[in-house]
Computed example of a mutant assay.
Amino acid sequence: MTATWEELTGQDEAVRLLTTAARDARGEPGGNGAMTHAWLITGPPGSGRSNLAFAFAAALLSPAGDPDDARTTAQVAAGTHPDLSVLATERVVITIDEVRSLVTTAQYSPSVARYRVMVIEDADRMSERTSNVLLKALEEPPPRTVWILCAPSEADLLPTIRSRTRSVRLRVPEAHQVADLLVSRDGVDPAVALRAAEEAQSHIGMAHRLATNADAQRRRDETIDLVLGLRSIPQAVRAAERLLDTAKEDAAAQSEERDEADRAAAMRSLGVEPGGAVPNQVRGALRALEDDFKRRATRGMRDSVDRILLDLLSVHRDVLMIQLGAGVPLVNRTRSQALHALAGAGDPAATLAVLDAIADARRRLPANVAPLLALEAMLVSTVLHRAAA
């Protein structure tokens, strides 16, 4: 996680609002009464919701007069600050017991900072019953507790939750802003960075992955080529299987990277040297960690399928823009020739129908429809609409 303002690309207005609120929280001039006890940060995937939440948390937890305290920033980034509590989930939903535990912790007075900060990264993953547990805490907050909720949009939370929070809306950064970040932060070649930013549709994390991981870029290229070449229903059925395999490969690669890092961090925290024997008394904790990894892998695979669907949306968005003569930049400009050929072979009505089919597939995934069935239905519909154009 990031706990500094500098990497929040294209979110100047939100940063100004929260830095002003942090000054107000510390009693400094220029705060203008901007501070409140509960915040809701919304924005599309990759916009930096969690990064903004942790940067704000670091500013609130830093010693008075020193909002950029390096020690506090490092503790927040590592999730080890004693007055910071974070709730995220690798499951489909946040459980009511997890929220109850967090609400209990919120009642404690801060131990070293002026505030106790409670961050919920996936607030949209709470059921109505679970949200009502949180609502009670927001209605009667302790004087030194600050809640920071993150969600894709305000509509993902109950109106009663929204009414008790101050909203901070993030926007999608420009592709060139994301590219500039990749160049300055990661040393990526400018041309590679811009292509990655465009193809990731300004999702910073995905742009970084495409720019720095050749296998991730290869899998995306194969996905686009596969769908551009669809001509028959048998092809669509085989393509669905291949897309699911690609999603599994991508999810496995990401899980392996994260699991290895988290496993090493857990071993260090338990006092186990790399390659050393694991004492019996900590094996239970490691088994629980492995169970978390399995749950994360399940969610990761579904997220990978959704990323593929987003890529397909970008392809047919490009086709539609060409058909309408909109004159806007293409997301997949390296496929310009194939996109123009597909646009010429169809019409806007058929392309809109394909976009609807992809959107339907995205809605079915969270409803526990088997990913393969969702992909098959979407690709068969794509072939039929193209043929009817």
Rank of each mutant, 00 (worst) to 15 (best):
S62W: 07
S62I: 05
A58V: 01
L60K: 06
Q75L: 14
P82E: 10
F56D: 06
L87W: 00
A78S: 15
V76R: 07
A59V: 07
D69Q: 09
A59C: 08
A74D: 15
V76L: 00
A74P: 08
D69N: 15
H81A: 12
T73Q: 14
F56V: 07
F56S: 05
N51R: 13
S62P: 11
L60F: 01
A70I: 11
V86M: 01
T80V: 12
G79D: 05
L60H: 04
D66A: 13
T72Q: 05
F54K: 03
V86I: 15
A55I: 01
A58I: 00
A78T: 13
A77L: 03
L61G: 12
A64F: 01
R71Q: 14
T73W: 01
F56K: 03
P67K: 11
L84W: 06
F54C: 01
R71T: 11
P82R: 10
A55D: 06
T73S: 12
D69H: 12
F56H: 08
L87V: 07
D68Q: 08
L52V: 07
S85D: 14
P63V: 00
Q75H: 14
Q75N: 08
T80S: 15
P67E: 13
A77P: 04
L52N: 01
D68Y: 07
A53V: 04
A55R: 00
L84R: 11
L84F: 14
A70F: 02
L60Q: 05
D83F: 14
A57V: 01
L60Y: 02
A77T: 09
S62K: 06
F56L: 06
S62F: 10
F56W: 04
Q75S: 05
A64S: 14
P67N: 11
F56R: 03
P67W: 11
L61Y: 08
N51Y: 04
A77W: 02
P63Q: 12
A64L: 13
A70P: 07
A74G: 09
L60A: 06
A57W: 04
A77C: 05
G65P: 09
D83S: 14
T73R: 14
R71V: 10
D83E: 12
T80W: 01
F54Q: 00
A58C: 09
L61F: 12
G79S: 06
L84N: 09
G65R: 02
L84E: 09
V86F: 02
A78I: 02
L61E: 07
D68G: 15
T72A: 02
L61A: 11
T72F: 01
D66Y: 07
A53G: 05
L60G: 08
S62Q: 10
L61H: 09
T72D: 00
H81M: 09
L87D: 01
A59S: 13
A64D: 15
P82K: 08
A64M: 11
D68M: 03
A77K: 06
G65Y: 07
T80R: 11
A78W: 07
V76H: 00
T72I: 02
P82W: 12
